[in-house]
């Protein structure tokens, strides 16, 4: 079954507890962050002590805090980092800034979206709701996509990020099939900008500038292997990689730093004081399709409304099957033969 919408019921805590990361970290008490010296002391100085009810409002920006924590974690060896993303659905405003920022950062072609945001409507007028759900790659701890790769072109790094060697992928798209989250997609070689010859800038300009401007994703890095040009990713599978080329340089992933709702958080789960840990502790979270045992590294916070978000996801799955598939593909059954029969 598709519906991986199980609520964790504290599975996070048990998981964290198992790892004993939280030893001694008291709820809320870990909020206080030590002021660092040097480059990273980005906190606004001399803050008046805020009234208790507006707890986090006057502290440093989450972006600054996460950047600082990221840079701290980079000092540890790779295998001691565990990157996770936390998405607070209460703060997601369905703006797709992350989506487009990702396209811009990774220069992905049309048809590839590392981070779509799914939007769907539930309820009836006037009690209608719009639901937003961003879906990066889950960077599973038990990735179902890597083991199916026939040529070892994709694997999980020690810090939990699932990467693809673009120089090795043969383009069989088996991993695309295996990913239960739809997080892998094929680069068919389309380009955003019309063939140059059609515009007033005919000949070279815009094309060079837009499409040949390569992402660092294509650059030869320790994570991706050989040197790639745009041509080298055509025909193969691509996926979200938490912007390794940014995080390794101490910069937050593009989707995190551009999220105008402030809904996306990134950090090291192995750092008990990190913002992501604090959020998970404070609000609890669920992960998508946990029953598949993929152990995703992306957590969704729903707050008190969590249960309803999940039931809405489930309702939407059913509705999709009954309505959207019906619309796109036709078909006459609405319920099973045993239930409703032919209409």
């Amino acid at each position: 079954m598709v519906d991986g919408l199980r609520r964790p019921n504290g599975s996070e805590t048990s998981r964290l507890g198992r790892r004993e990361f939280l030893k001694g970290a008291l709820l809320g008490a870990a909020v206080t962050v030590g002021v660092l010296s040097g480059d990273l002391s980005l906190r606004v100085a001399a803050q008046p002590s805020p009234p208790a009810e507006s707890l986090a409002l006057d502290r440093e920006s989450e972006l600054v805090r996460m950047t600082r924590e990221l840079q701290e974690s980079l000092k540890k060896p790779l295998q001691e980092r565990k990157w996770v993303m936390v998405i607070d659905l209460r703060r997601c405003v369905g703006c797709h800034s992350c989506t487009v920022s990702c396209i811009a950062e990774n220069k992905t072609p049309p048809g590839i979206t590392y981070r779509p945001v799914m939007i769907w409507e539930t309820g009836e007028y006037p009690n209608v709701k719009l639901n937003f759900l961003p879906r990066p790659c889950m960077q599973c701890d038990e990735p179902p996509c890597t083991s199916v790769c026939p040529v070892n072109a994709t694997w999980k790094r020690e810090d939990g990020i699932v990467v693809i060697d673009y120089g090795k992928c043969i383009g069989c798209r088996y991993c695309v099939m295996a990913c239960p989250y739809g997080a892998r997609s094929t680069d068919y070689g389309y380009e955003w900008v019309p063939e140059l010859e059609h515009g007033p800038l005919a000949g070279t300009a815009a094309k060079e500038r837009q499409d040949r401007v390569k992402s660092l994703e294509y650059q030869p890095t320790p994570w991706y292997g050989g040197p790639y040009g745009r041509g080298d990713t055509i025909g193969i599978t691509r996926k979200c990689h938490f912007c390794i080329h940014r995080i390794e340089s101490g910069v937050l992933p593009a989707c995190v730093s551009t999220c105008i709702g402030g809904a996306t958080y990134f950090g090291d789960l192995n750092n008990p004081n990190s913002l992501v840990n604090e959020l998970l502790r404070r609000y609890g979270a669920f992960r998508l399709k946990e029953e598949l045992g993929t152990e995703p590294s992306v957590y969704y916070i729903t707050g008190e409304g969590g249960a309803s978000v999940i039931s809405e996801l489930e309702a939407m799955v059913d509705r999709y099957r009954e309505e959207v598939l019906l619309r796109e593909f036709g078909g006459r059954f609405r319920a099973g033969l045993g239930g409703g029969g032919l209409e």
């Binding site: 048809g111 799914m118 879906r135 989250y181 799955v317 598939l325």
Partner: peptide, 25 residues
């Protein structure tokens, strides 16, 4: 094929599937 009609996340809006096919070579 019919199997692939169902997407990993069924509520992905159809927009995501419409490629903005530009002119191409």
């Amino acid at each position: 094929l019919p199997t692939l009609a169902e997407k990993p996340f069924p509520w992905m809006p159809p927009e995501w599937d419409i490629k903005m096919l530009p002119w191409d070579r």
